[in-house]
């Protein structure tokens, strides 16, 4: 179980990082989504991996799972969901306004604009 969770987090982060470094906005958005999934699973695991345990301590309960990471994951999911929606809208708007979907605003092979910026 530890191996399964750890390797899936690692795989998600690796794929997310690869996609994040791509030049077009769509893979970047997918990359960010993958990384946020990985982070959510990681947050779950930080309260140790337990199965079929109650999250709330009552009389007679000796084994329980840590409820705090679950609350944190809920917050993280809400924020990352909203942010994914925002960045999808933003990249569509940028595509419509700039005319291409590259993160630095110019198609592959076009001359660099660095000379007349800044």
């Amino acid at each position: 179980m530890e191996f399964l969770v750890a390797s899936s987090i690692g795989l998600l982060i690796a794929c997310g990082t690869y996609l994040l470094l791509r030049g077009r906005t769509f893979p970047v958005v997918i990359g960010l989504a993958l990384i946020s999934y990985a982070v959510n699973v990681f947050l779950f695991a930080m309260g140790r991996l337990t199965i079929n345990m109650p999250p709330i301590l009552r009389d007679g309960v000796t084994e329980y799972t840590d409820p705090l990471p679950q609350a944190l994951v809920l917050t993280a999911i809400v924020i990352s969901f909203g942010m994914t929606a925002l960045i999808v809208v933003l990249s569509i708007r940028a595509y419509l306004e700039i005319g291409n979907d590259h993160v630095d605003g110019r198609p592959v092979g076009a001359p660099s604009e660095a000379g007349d910026k800044n």
Partner: peptide, 17 residues
């Protein structure tokens, strides 16, 4: 501004993760 804003949002979302 959209181009710079896109980069700003991506770097900060990565930072949040």
């Amino acid at each position: 501004r959209l181009k710079a804003g896109m980069q700003y949002v991506v770097i900060n979302l990565t930072g949040s993760a």
